[in-house]
Each structure stands twice: as structure tokens, then as C-alpha cells.
């Protein structure tokens, strides 16, 4: 049986080194590029006709646009409009990474902690900068609950601070863990089916169910990643 974590192995395609750092073009990089190309193609070609009554592809592109736009409007407010391109790109990048990974023999770059953390830390730092830029040191006020006795600050503030700092980690680990676990389960089950031969019919049905579930998780995690970004943005912009 194939090792279920074999699918996460990174293979260099074009070895590359810049300033002594290994930045080889790998299978992971390849699928990032594929995602960029597909997402761009999908979002530009589908609306090429600029049809007033949209076709199937255009409807999907419009649906995604409005989905993210509504998410920002509901969670961030009107001031969140200028972050729309970033949030939308983030959503597309994660979504395409998750969905591409559902195709057999592909590489799921969102199942790599380096990638998810790389995205999460950018969001975290960006949001923190926005918060301080808008509110100055007043932003620190967030870490102390309103109305709590001042003496409790010495314990509450560090806890809230750690809670705040753990956000990029939990964001990154969540996406990584969901994608990794899902793919391992699929791989293990597929291995079982191959081993069982004819008797593998029953697990095959189950595998179909799990695959559907994994598609749901792929969509859900892209949504979670995006909506958390929106919530963080809301905090940084509005601050109660």
C-alpha cells in the first residue's frame, strides 16, 4: 500500500537558488501557478461576453464576486470595500488550492503548513498594522475587557494578547490540518479498495461519500479562512 503521506511530498521540478536560498520550482509551486492561471481564466473568460443574462460560467463568477462582496459588507462594513481585491484573491487562492487537490494525482498546496502559515501571517501582520494605523496605541485597549477590575489586567491582558497572537497559528493549522487529514483518509480508503479487489465495492461507496464530504470541507475551509480575515479586518477598522 502506498504511503498515505507520500502525496504531500515536495519534488523539485526546476532547482533554483537565489542568494543562497533554495527557491526551487516544485510540484507545489506548479500547482500554485496552475491555480493562478485557472482562477484568472475562469474569472476573465466567463464574463468576456458581458452578458446581461449570464450563462453558467458567468453566473458562477458573479456568484463568487457577490459572495465575497457580501461577506465583506456584512462583516467589515462599507469601509472594507478597499480590501475587497485582497480578500477576493485570498478566497480564490485557497479555494482553488483546495479544489485542485481533490483531483487525483494532483498536489494540494493548502495541505502544507508553510503555505497556510505564510498566508495567515500576512493577514495577521496586515490587520495589526491597519489596527495600529487607524487607532494608534488605543488599539491596545482591545486586550482589556470593558468593565473588568483593573487589577485583573495583569492576568487578562497577557491571555488576550496570546489569544490574539495565536490567531495566525490557529488559522494556518486549521486549514492545513483539515486538508491533510481529509487527503490522508481518502488515500487510505483508496488503498483499501485496491487491496480488497472485488470486495472493495462497499468501501467504494463509502469513499464516494467521503469524497463529497471532502469537497464540502474544501469549500468550507476556503470560506472560513476568508471570513476570519473579514472579522479580523472588522476588529482592526472599527474597534469597539
Amino acid at each position: 500500500m502506498a504511503n498515505p503521506v507520500e502525496q504531500f511530498k515536495i519534488e523539485p521540478i526546476v532547482p533554483l537558488e537565489i542568494g543562497g536560498v533554495n527557491v526551487s520550482f516544485t510540484n507545489s509551486s506548479l500547482f500554485m501557478v496552475v491555480a493562478v492561471v485557472l482562477a484568472t481564466a475562469f474569472l476573465t473568460l466567463s464574463v468576456k461576453g458581458r452578458a446581461l443574462v449570464p450563462g453558467r460560467w458567468q453566473s458562477m463568477a458573479e456568484l463568487m464576486y457577490e459572495f465575497v462582496a457580501n461577506m465583506i459588507r456584512d462583516n467589515v462594513g462599507t469601509e472594507g470595500r478597499k480590501y475587497f481585491p485582497f480578500v477576493f484573491t485570498l478566497f480564490m487562492f485557497v479555494l482553488f488550492g483546495n479544489l485542485l487537490g481533490m483531483i487525483p494525482y494532483t498536489f494540494t498546496y493548502t495541505s502544507h503548513i508553510a503555505v497556510t502559515f505564510g498566508l495567515a501571517i500576512v493577514i495577521f501582520i496586515g490587520v495589526t498594522i491597519i489596527g495600529f494605523a487607524r487607532h494608534g496605541t488605543h488599539y491596545l485597549r482591545m486586550f482589556f475587557p470593558h468593565g473588568a477590575p483593573l487589577a485583573t489586567a495583569i492576568i487578562l491582558v497577557p491571555i488576550e494578547l496570546i489569544s490574539y497572537c495565536s490567531r495566525p497559528f490557529s488559522l494556518a493549522i486549521r486549514l492545513f490540518a483539515n486538508m491533510t487529514v481529509g487527503h490522508i483518509i481518502l488515500k487510505v480508503m483508496a488503498g483499501f479498495i485496491i487491496m480488497l479487489g472485488i470486495a472493495g465495492i462497499a468501501p467504494m461507496v463509502f469513499l464516494g461519500g467521503v469524497t463529497v464530504l471532502e469537497f464540502g470541507i474544501a469549500l468550507l475551509q476556503a470560506y472560513v479562512f476568508t471570513i476570519l480575515t473579514c472579522i479580523y479586518l472588522h476588529d482592526a477598522i472599527h474597534m469597539h
Partner: peptide
């Protein structure tokens, strides 16, 4: 491959960001 992952992540993300915000 951490460095490679981050490098290509940011590169492709920025490209996607530009493509989407300029064209799509």
C-alpha cells in the same frame, strides 16, 4: 522547501492579486 514554498506562494499570490484586481 519552506523558503521555496513561501517564495512561490507570495509570487503567485501577488500575480493573482494583480491579475484579478486589474482585469477580472
Amino acid at each position: 522547501y519552506f523558503a521555496s514554498q513561501l517564495f512561490w506562494l507570495y509570487a503567485s499570490f501577488i500575480v493573482l492579486f494583480i491579475l484579478l484586481s486589474v482585469f477580472a
